[in-house]
Each structure stands twice: as structure tokens, then as C-alpha cells.
Design a protein around this nucleic acid. Structure first.
Lengths: 342, 342
DNA sequence: CTCCACGAGTTTATCGATAAAAAGAGCAAC
DNA sequence: GTTGCTCTTTTTATCGATAAACTCGTGGAG
């Protein structure tokens, strides 16, 4: 069972009684091969169970048909689901995805962009977390890259992003339409005017304004982690503050799940006492109790757009076209957490 | 910015005024290079920002330093968390992980084992889902492979597995120790004597027996999907059956989360009316309300063991040692879902 | 003074594929 | 009968790295 060395194009050629180049031409689908020769070669391929060595092919061609997906952490459901969507979209486009987790750690993020692995792929889909536009620009990146998500918004790079403002606005309006007047906001980030948090806050404010409700600073909770545990403590601090509220918009589902847990633990009823909406429409949202209303950004569409854009850039080669920015659509998945008198 | 072609060892050699082989020797850490030459080469490397082309290296060496992780679906939190653990363990071992999702689809599972990508990696960590031992054996696999998880138990392959029986037994005993007498079981699989489901059922029965409680078929719900939605409907069918029960062991957390949701929707109180335990200790379990008691198999330990075993096999090359089977340890994370009179 | 060992490099071959150039065979046209 | 032109196949070069064989001074032993 000593791993019989895989057969090569030369082995096939020998068996078929032709030169290796003939085999190669057949494999690449080139014309100009006599029917009888073709049959012999195919036979040999079959017989030897030949499979092309992609490493060799990659070396020769200079491209690999792989793209990297640089993503912070698969443990977070949103990222895991997004990764799955990207993998699916890439497969449909004939590409393979190499998932690189960065832990949201600046060094690891940079190493994905510059490290050894980066030559193994034709391009990178990059979900930035701890790197900002300036650092990224300074990296003099010499391969196609598409940003996905919202940490970095105004850079020189192609970008696929979520309908942050619109989604947050729609979610907030939905709460208001259900008769809520004191809408809290969890997930603001200090000191940023761009990025998802700022845009979602903007959408929230727009919705309040449109409804003639005053914006109140004390209803806005800062939270830049956007994870379940932080959502839980953010909600705790909101409750502790004593400021009354009847609903809350959370910047993502993880925050919402955490916040929900804190609310229920505190003996509050959802949605009766407090209604909640999240953002991302992860599967968690469907199975919490009560189930969670959430802004659905259309992950598959997003992934398709990102993969498609990256693929175009790869095909363009050096000739970089105009920078592109794609914003996905959204819909609001309305569930139990915002039920009630409409 | 037309992607200046990356520099090669020949470029470095030219700049340093030596032959390419000298550069290679230096990179590989071979001895026999004068200090002064070394400095010149290092200088050139620095100056050209040279980085070795791993594709070329792979072709020459025949190995890639990558392992594949064949996993059904990243959307399921357990798999996502496991993937993250494997990536971490591999990184610590100096390996890179190539995540391949199979969707639990037989064709895709086989294609991972035989397909083009498989030559790109030195070995495969394989979480089987829809393939059974016979099919797998028939594949005549000629590279190192380690099975992870429990769908296939008695095969010729190395295997890292969970403490299925012991964990399920401990969980059931925990329920019994909390005064529960009518313990239901969700997640049995028909027609299997091996595999996780069967072993966990065995553990459940052992615990009942040890406590002198009769095993009752009508409390055992079949469910081979082990996902949230199926857990929800399994619980629904249990409730519909009218058979009284005061607690339930679910074969994994996904089932438990789904079941929990159904229970709460039905107006039952958890744990007052029904206590629940899950298996896997995913992060979901900590943030549901009530939080979920779960058997924790020590994912990091499991991942380390699997990666370590695979790495040994890779280093051994053809000389395959004795088949190994590793069972991880476990602990019981006790949370709100089983609180109550102890 | 010759021979051999040794350190420090250099040349050459190789991994498995693809691309470009070259070569033979067969046939029509002048 | 030679030239020219397809059609098919073979030869040769190349991608970037590594391994093995080879070269060339130098110094020590005999």
C-alpha cells in the first residue's frame, strides 16, 4: 500500500504511445487531435487513473483558481454563514475558497495580505476588522482584493457593502410603527463617522427624525465588539442606567441575542415590555425564543457580488478598472420579538 | 501599479552576485556559506522584498504544509467552532488548514477525498457525514487521513472521537440526580448500532438502568438531522404524542436549541416543567434563555489530538503505523436548563 | 613537491504541467 | 517533380524552487 506515486502526463503519454504534449493538448481541449489518438489517450488516462497535478499547473500558469477569504472568526455565526455563502458563490463561479481566519488581530490580518499564503491565491476577499483604511493603503498590495463588510468604507479598494443606513432605518421604523416610542440603540462606536456602526446609527436617527421623535443620547449604548457577551453586558448597563425604553435596535444579531438573554433574565417580557430587532438575519435569530426580527442583507447575493467582482478583477489582470462599490439589497425578517399592537 | 512581477531566487542571486543555489541554500538554512556572502544575499532579499514561491516549492518537494478539513457545513455552529479549533491547532503545529465543505453530500465528500484539491494538501481531516465505512474503505485512499467525529466508527482508519457513551450517560445521570424520572431522548438514529447516535443512546440507557428506571421506547425520538429545525419538530412530535416527560437529553446542542424553542412556544417552563441537556457545548448554549446544560467534549483538545495524529501520519510517510483511536475527555457544563431541586 | 580533503560555490537535472516552435505526412497546384 | 499548405504530432523551453554532482582554490599530510 506504499502510496504508488501518482501518474503524470508522461506516464499517460507512454502508455498511449504518444508524446506528453499530445496528452496536454487533449486535456486543455485544444483542437487538432485525430479521433483515434484521442481514444487511445483517454484510454490511458482511464487506465492509470491519471489526474493532473494542480501544483505543477499552478506553477506554470501563474494562477491557482483559488481565492482567499480573510475573515475574523468562524465561531461568530454571522461570519460562519457568510463564509459558507462565499464558498457557495465561489464554487458556482468555478473558484475554490481558502478560508483564512484573522482573529481580528492586526498582525494576522496583515499577514494574510502579505504572507506566504497570499501567493497561493489569485485574489483576496477581505473582511477587515482591526485594520483601517490608511494602514491598508500603505500595504502596497499587488493582487486583486475586494473588501467585504463595513469596517473600512472610503478607501481606494473595491468594496461590497451592506445597506447599513437603509436597513437600520427600516428596522427602527418598524419598531416605531409597532407603537414603540423609546427606541434604544446598542452597538454604537465612539469616534467614527464612517463604518457600519456610524451608518446604522445614522439610519436610526433618520427614522426617529422622520417620526418626529427626539434623539436621546442616553438611549445609545456604545459597543464595538458586537458579540453575544458584549450585547448581554450592554443591555445590562442600559437597564442599570434606569433610563426607560420600550424597544431596542441592535447593530447585529449577536448583540441582540445577548441583549435578549439579559432582558429575559431580568424578568422582562419580550416583546411585551421591550421589542428587539437585530441585523444580519443569522440562523440564531430564527431559533431564539422569542424569535428575533432582523434586517436581512441577503448574504448569498452579497457573496455572489463580492466573488463576481473579485473574479472580474482577477481576469482584468493588471489593467485595473474604475473602483467599484456594490451595496446589497435588504429585507426585514419580521418575527416574534417585535410582535404586538401594530 | 501594474503588479511588478514578484522576484525569484534568480533575481536575488543576480543582485547579490552569486548563483541561485547559494540563495536557496541560505534559505533552507544549509551550512557552508561565508558570513560575508550571507550578508550580501540577505541584503538582496530585503532589497527586492523577495518571498519564496510556495507553489514552486510544493512542486519540487511534493508536500505543501497544508491539510484539508472536510466538514459538512459551517453554518452549523458546532462545525464552525470545531473548524476554528482545528485551524488554531494546525497553526500551532505549523500547518495551514484548507477548509472544504461537503454539505454532507456523498458526492462532495468523495470528491474531497479524491478530487483535485486533495493533491494540494498533505493529509485530510475528515468529518464524515453521509459516507459509511464500506464506501470509504473502497476508496483506496493513498494519503494520510484521520477521521474526526463519529459517523464512522469501526474502519481501518485513524480516528479521533468523542466520549459519546460516557458523556450521554453523565448528562442523563445529571438529569436523574436533579430528580427527573421521565427522561426523553431526542436524536436517535434508526438501524445503526455504531456511530454517535447509537452510543449516546447506549449511555442514556446505561444511566437509566443504573438508576433503576425502565427504558421506554416511546420516550425516544428518532432524528438523524441533528439540526435546530429538526430538534424543534422532534420536540413537537414528542409533545403531540402525549407521553408525559419531565426532561430531555438531546444528542447535540442544535437539537436542544430547537427543542427548547418548541417547549417555550408551547408555554412550558424550562427547567421547571422540563429540563434539557445538550451535547457539544457550543456558544449558543451559553446564550440561550434559559442557558443550556451541555456535555463539553473539549473541542480544542479534540482538535489538537486530531491534528497531531494526522501530522504524525504525514511525517511517517508510507510507513503506516498501527491504526489509532483517540477519545477525547469531557466535562458537563451545568447551566440554567437543568436547575432546580437537586 | 604531490596528493587529498575540505570549504564555498557553481552547474546541471528535476518536479509536472503548458506554450511555442519545429517537424513529418499527405495532398493539391503549377 | 518540386513547392506550398494543411493537419497532426513531437521537441524544446519555461514556471521557481531544491537536490545532487561538480569545480576551484587552499592548506595539511606524507
Amino acid at each position: 500500500m506504499a502510496a504508488t506515486k501518482a501518474s503524470t502526463i508522461y506516464d499517460v503519454a507512454k502508455v498511449a504511445g504518444v508524446s506528453h504534449q499530445t496528452v496536454s493538448r487533449l486535456l486543455r481541449g485544444h483542437a487538432g487531435i485525430r479521433e483515434e489518438t484521442r481514444a487511445r489517450v483517454l484510454d490511458a488516462i482511464e487506465q492509470l487513473d491519471y489526474r493532473p497535478n494542480i501544483t505543477a499547473r499552478n506553477l506554470r500558469n501563474g494562477n491557482t483558481g483559488m481565492i482567499a477569504l480573510a475573515i475574523p472568526d468562524l465561531r461568530q455565526p454571522y461570519f460562519a454563514e457568510l463564509a459558507q455563502s462565499v464558498i457557495g458563490a465561489a464554487r458556482a463561479a468555478g473558484l475554490t475558497v481558502f478560508v483564512e481566519t484573522t482573529d481580528g488581530n492586526p498582525e494576522r490580518e496583515l499577514s494574510v495580505l502579505g504572507g506566504a499564503q497570499s501567493q497561493l491565491v489569485d485574489g483576496v476577499l477581505y473582511i477587515p476588522k482591526s485594520i483601517d483604511a490608511d494602514i491598508l493603503t500603505a500595504q502596497n498590495i499587488d493582487f486583486p482584493i475586494v473588501l467585504l463588510g463595513d469596517r473600512i468604507l472610503n478607501s481606494q479598494f473595491d468594496h461590497v457593502t451592506l445597506p447599513n443606513l437603509e436597513g437600520a432605518k427600516a428596522a427602527t421604523q418598524h419598531l416605531i410603527s409597532r407603537g414603540r416610542k423609546q427606541v434604544a440603540f446598542i452597538g454604537a462606536e465612539p469616534d467614527t463617522d464612517f463604518g457600519a456602526a456610524a451608518l446604522r446609527l445614522r439610519g436610526y436617527r433618520d427614522a426617529l427624525e422622520a417620526a418626529g421623535i427626539a434623539y436621546r443620547q442616553e438611549l445609545v449604548i456604545f459597543d464595538s465588539e458586537w458579540e453575544r457577551h458584549s450585547g448581554a453586558s450592554s443591555m445590562k448597563s442600559l437597564l442599570d442606567s434606569g433610563v426607560p425604553f420600550d424597544s431596542v435596535f441592535c447593530c447585529n444579531d449577536a448583540l441582540a441575542i445577548g441583549a435578549l438573554r439579559t432582558l429575559l433574565s431580568a424578568g422582562l417580557r419580550v416583546p411585551d415590555d421591550v421589542a428587539i430587532v437585530g441585523f444580519d438575519d443569522t440562523e440564531d435569530a430564527r431559533f431564539s425564543f422569542p424569535s428575533l426580527t432582523s434586517v436581512s442583507p441577503g448574504r448569498d447575493e452579497l457573496a455572489r457580488a463580492a466573488v463576481g467582482l473579485l473574479q472580474r478583477r482577477i481576469e482584468e489582470g493588471g489593467a485595473r478598472g474604475e473602483r467599484e462599490e456594490i451595496v446589497s439589497g435588504y429585507s426585514l425578517a419580521i418575527r416574534e420579538s417585535t410582535a404586538g399592537a401594530s
